[in-house]
């Protein structure tokens, strides 16, 4: 049981950064950013490659920078070149496959053997005992969440929020919405890159397919979190919902993995169904309401 909780917390903290990224792009900017899958692997590849070269800490920042770059390309495609936003993400994502292979030295997976990672380094400090991985990951996640919370209340953050809320009003306030979209997507993908970096060093390996459908899982966690935290009331609450949603999702995942309650092969289908249902819920509710009323009155 302790094993389950520990794993769920660890993965929940690491992957909550992907959800945080989706919160920025999908909720705040109102853009479905599909760079996420490739960007996660990019972070992982850069992180593991640099850790192999003996720079585990630098690796984390390198991965964040790489994520920023990926976000910039997606933003550039949609704001300056007029590529529709969803397509821009897919195009970047496709291109990233090759970039990721390159970052991993043209092999489809890369492992760390005896090299130091930020986790092995942190273990030496003795903080957290056997929970050291959880402690470090949670610290990273909470730090990022505090940073995003702070950022969203700055003038630049307010402009980014307004961009997703009413783009005309942003240009009327003498801010270029192209700029705010770019900054927002770079910040979001930086979080995704960091998530990949932590995941890579934690499991001591990088795999070219590690990012598959991470965007859907991230969205599922976002929605689970929002449902549990009662809607979208304040930014702070929303950000905490990202973490909570991930921990709950990973808890369920771990339990399923342990008990084989649902065949593990079916998990992606389950996730997809959960996301589709959760996003469809408001319109289904409305239709059901109309249907019930019609039945009663006719």
């Amino acid at each position: 049981m302790q094993q389950i909780i520990q794993t769920a917390l660890l993965l929940g903290c690491i992957y909550s950064l992907v959800t945080l990224a989706l919160f920025i792009s999908y909720r705040v900017l109102d853009i479905a950013d599909l760079t996420t899958d490739g960007c996660f692997v990019l972070g992982m590849a850069v992180s593991v490659s640099l850790a192999r070269a003996g720079h585990p800490v630098l690796a984390v920042f390198g991965a964040m920078l790489a994520g920023c770059g990926a976000g910039f390309i997606t933003a550039f495609l949609q704001t300056r070149l007029g590529v529709p936003s969803i397509l821009a993400g897919i195009v970047t994502n496709t291109g990233l496959y090759t970039v990721n292979l390159m970052a991993m030295g043209w092999s489809s997976n890369l492992t760390l053997l005896k090299q130091e990672t930020i986790y092995t380094m942190f273990r030496f400090t003795g903080i957290g005992g056997t929970w050291y991985q959880v402690v470090l990951s949670a610290a990273a996640a909470l730090l990022c969440m505090a940073a995003v919370r702070w950022f969203m209340s700055t003038r630049l953050g307010l402009s980014i929020r307004a961009t997703g809320d009413n783009r005309d009003m942003v240009s009327a306030s003498s801010i270029n919405p192209k700029f705010t979209v770019t900054v927002g997507l770079m910040a979001a993908n930086m979080m995704t890159g960091l998530s990949g970096a932590l995941a890579g060093q934690m499991q001591k390996s990088a795999d070219i397919n590690a990012g598959n459908s991470i965007v859907v899982i991230g969205l599922a966690c976002l929605i689970i979190g929002e449902t549990v935290m009662q809607g979208r009331k304040s930014i702070g609450r929303n950000i905490l919902a990202c973490l909570l949603g991930n921990i709950i999702y990973r808890m369920i995942y771990a339990i399923i993995l342990q008990t084989r309650f649902i065949p593990i092969e079916c998990l992606k289908l389950m996730t997809a169904v959960i996301v589709a249902l959760a996003i469809a819920a408001p319109s289904m509710k409305e239709q059901a309401g109309v249907w019930m009323r019609a039945r009663k009155e006719i």
């Binding site: 003038r155 809320d165 009003m169 306030s173």
Partner: peptide
């Protein structure tokens, strides 16, 4: 509805407009 951001507070909307003071 065109001139304001609906999901932000009055204070935040004014702060954005005040950015024009640059």
């Amino acid at each position: 509805l065109k001139g304001t951001a609906p999901h932000m507070t009055i204070r935040e909307n004014l702060a954005l407009a005040y950015l024009r003071a640059g």
